[in-house]
Design a protein around this nucleic acid. Structure first.
Lengths: 233, 233
DNA sequence: CGTTAGATTTCGTGA
DNA sequence: TCACGAAGTCTAACG
């Protein structure tokens, strides 16, 4: 990994066209070939970048920038990506330049994403409704799998769409599934349930309008049900 | 902006739970308070991060990590965010540490996004169909504005949804608008057109099934129509 | 290889 | 401030 702090201007032409006027910025070159240009804000997002695969070529005696003919340039970097994408960095002055050997990262472990929420609900269908039982996770349909298919105490099937955050797209998705499932004579009338940690008001309105019930799920409580050791009380 | 290259392990607890075992990484602290931890791959995305507003506290004589009692730690950084989010960085060895004054970035100019595509189509409705005229951009409905409302040579209204890339969500969106617009007796029967630089096959199928026409738009040609100087041929 | 759905999405804009 | 739509989204999984 190479870290360069420099006064530079930047031009990007590819999926869009963008220009950065001359200013002091961090240029980050990773071992994967990626190049990113950071200002001192915007959290982790760079101002401009090039994703791998790409190639960096350096011109140590470039012409001056057309936009600023008076400014002498130390170097011009050209990063070429796929599809003719080009990131051009015109460097007027380098403040810092260092390289570091990081090695391959051992990777990271995550917990608490939608897949895990789905697992927890599959293991505890009673959370969604009294007397409900799981029929199948990832129940297949022609347009994709339904997250959970359950059956209530009366034997009625319920299609459950699980989201971490319940927004309008999830309701649309469940609507398409229900349309298909309700054509299947083996299942009979299928109801819909939209389950999420939090449901946006507009999504709730749309769901209700379509006869889909909404359930907000307490992730921590569910995890407690699943693993009593993790309870804190 | 402060750049630290160090052997560290990381724990994050907040919107999810995540752990990074000990390894050499870049820690980037920006003036906005954000902290991000980068490996030498994954392009510009960090392994872990904390977005502002957040506060960094440093413990210079921490206890050893529970997970690795044998490893002595130089420091432990705790970054606290909103909602009790916590990013904890356990530092075993610092390889590099430097700070740099970057100042406020003058910002960047972008071109070629959806808003501009919408402007160009509004200025050139004939691109969508012979004899078409623009009625209004951002035509308001109860659930949000339709990108373009046009009228063809016969006086029939057409609702146009503009996307850079035409996917299934855009068709759903236009469908909802059409449902509403067709209840308005002042407009009469309203047709739908889905316009994008490229339209995914499935989106095209869904649109066609719902009687919505698809138009692929040549952005560069449109820009040429709008500004003859920018033509390259 | 195309398509889909998720993301600690992030980021802007308009109400 | 909240909510929704767009993003140079990116990325991993699945058919």
């Amino acid at each position: 990994m190479r870290l360069v702090v420099a006064d530079c201007s930047v031009d990007y032409a590819g999926r869009l066209t963008a220009h950065l006027p001359m200013a002091t910025r961090l240029i980050l070159i990773k071992a994967d070939g990626s190049v990113s240009i950071h200002a001192d804000d915007r959290a982790y997002k760079p101002l401009n970048w090039m994703s791998p695969p790409c190639t960096l070529t350096i011109d140590e005696s470039p012409e001056s920038d057309e936009a600023a003919p008076g400014v002498a340039l130390e170097a011009r970097w050209q990063v070429r990506g796929k599809d003719g994408e080009l990131l051009q960095i015109s460097i007027a002055r380098v403040h810092h330049d260092s390289s570091h050997e990081l090695g391959v990262d051992p990777g990271l472990r995550k917990d608490g994403v939608e897949a895990h929420l789905q697992e927890l609900l599959a293991a505890n269908p009673e959370t969604l409704g009294r007397g409900w039982a799981l029929v199948r996770r990832e129940f297949p349909t022609a347009i994709g799998p339904v997250d959970l298919l359950c059956r209530d105490a009366d034997g009625t099937h319920i299609a459950v769409e699980v989201k971490r955050r319940g927004e309008i797209d999830g309701v649309e998705q469940l609507t398409r599934y229900l349309e298909l499932l309700n054509r299947d004579p083996l299942l009979g009338k299928v109801r819909g349930v939209f389950a999420a940690q939090a449901i946006k008001p507009q999504a709730r309105v749309l769901a209700t309008d379509r006869g889909i019930a909404c359930v907000t799920v307490d992730y921590d409580a569910l995890r407690g049900l699943d693993d009593p050791d993790s309870r804190l009380f």
